[in-house]
Design a protein around this nucleic acid. Structure first.
Lengths: 207, 207
DNA sequence: GTCTATAGGAGGATAGAC
DNA sequence: GTCTATCCTCCTATAGAC
């Protein structure tokens, strides 16, 4: 095993990193299913299968735990953005990102962070990895939004920032879980429905 | 003072009810700003200006406190529904309800209940006032939705239940608070923006 | 019903041995 | 770094006097 720097990595270090990734994945699922406040550190430790004190050797606080989970998801998002063709229609790329995000949410892998929480917000804002990732994603989506508005596929009357927020909000849309609970539609159908209401709106479209 | 039954009500009882309403209003604002988990009973008591033990004479648990706040908001919603002309276009009524709901949220008077919480959900489901009110509102909105779909103003291809959920979701749309935090738009403009993305969608509409 | 005081317990974080 | 055991704070809920 060799890192990006070309340095050799010991077997022990690999085990450590694997454990950290297991922790993050557990936190991810717990954040998705119960939210930050309801998630307990004891629970995380029990699910991972280690002692709580060991958890605190990896992450100094519950907030850092959540931040690590968020950063992990953002890295996946960035990888997905990389996989999209830059020469494709910006509108198609935006739609692809939103659909991908909703798929993540339906799979229970999208940590939901109540925007209200203060201690968590503070930890996220002071987390450079998180903020850098957020800004980079903002920039890439923002460029697509403006391009799509210029070419007329996206409504140019809407402020770009409002569009960006509206797209982000699909990642925590309660409509997704409500429709899933009703068990009337498959995940694929749910995504198509919410994609339709998001981009085409509730009103009937002429034509 | 005379109740709906025509019975006279003592001054003392009036004071009690006034206090309960003050409690509910406080809970309402706290739920709106911090959410159920972050809100503490000590805080509620302090804001109302009474001792915590006195609170528990009025409401047996924190969950009941939140349920009472929800029921209170639902009563206001029902009163608003009553104020709408039944002979108006169903689409106009639906739009009016959504705009009213978003105004409530922007004013910090819409309690936000994370759909995840279990203890709170249980309390709400076993609360007859809450469930009855919810069902009645569902029925009234559902009728308007189906009528609007029949006359073609609302997209008939969308399942009515998905439309209903989408309308409800505007009551806890994070886009509202994000736009408010950005301080680029007035409350009125924010409502118009989100109304537009909700009903007309993000895509450009022909014509 | 209102208060002061406190029980009871959950949960975040740490000590210290190995 | 991992464990067991423990600390300590915060919070829901109640006891008991008035």
């Amino acid at each position: 095993m060799v890192t990006r720097n070309g340095l050799r990595v010991s077997f022990k270090a690999q085990m450590l990193q694997a454990r950290e990734e297991a922790i993050i994945q557990t936190v991810n699922h717990l954040l998705a299913s119960k939210g930050f406040e309801a998630m307990t550190v004891d629970e995380v430790a029990a699910d991972v299968g280690i002692a709580k004190a060991s958890l605190y050797k990896h992450f100094p606080s519950k907030e850092d735990l959540a931040a690590a989970a968020m950063v992990s998801v953002m890295r996946r998002a960035q990888a997905f953005l990389d996989s999209l063709a830059e020469e494709a229609a910006p509108m198609d790329n935006l739609r692809a990102v939103v659909a991908w995000t909703m798929g993540l949410k339906l799979a229970g892998e999208m940590p939901s962070l109540p925007s209200q929480n203060s201690s968590l917000r503070a930890a996220l804002i002071s987390n450079a990895d998180y903020m850098d990732g957020l800004i980079e994603i903002n920039d890439r989506l923002g460029a697509w939004i403006e391009a799509a508005q210029k070419q007329g596929s996206l409504n140019p009357k809407l402020p770009a920032i409002a569009v960006l927020y509206t797209l982000y909000a699909r990642a925590c849309d309660p409509v997704l879980e409500f429709l899933k609970m009703s068990e009337l539609h498959s995940d694929k159908e749910i995504i198509e429905l919410v994609m339709s209401t998001c981009f085409e709106g509730l009103n009937t479209r002429p034509g």
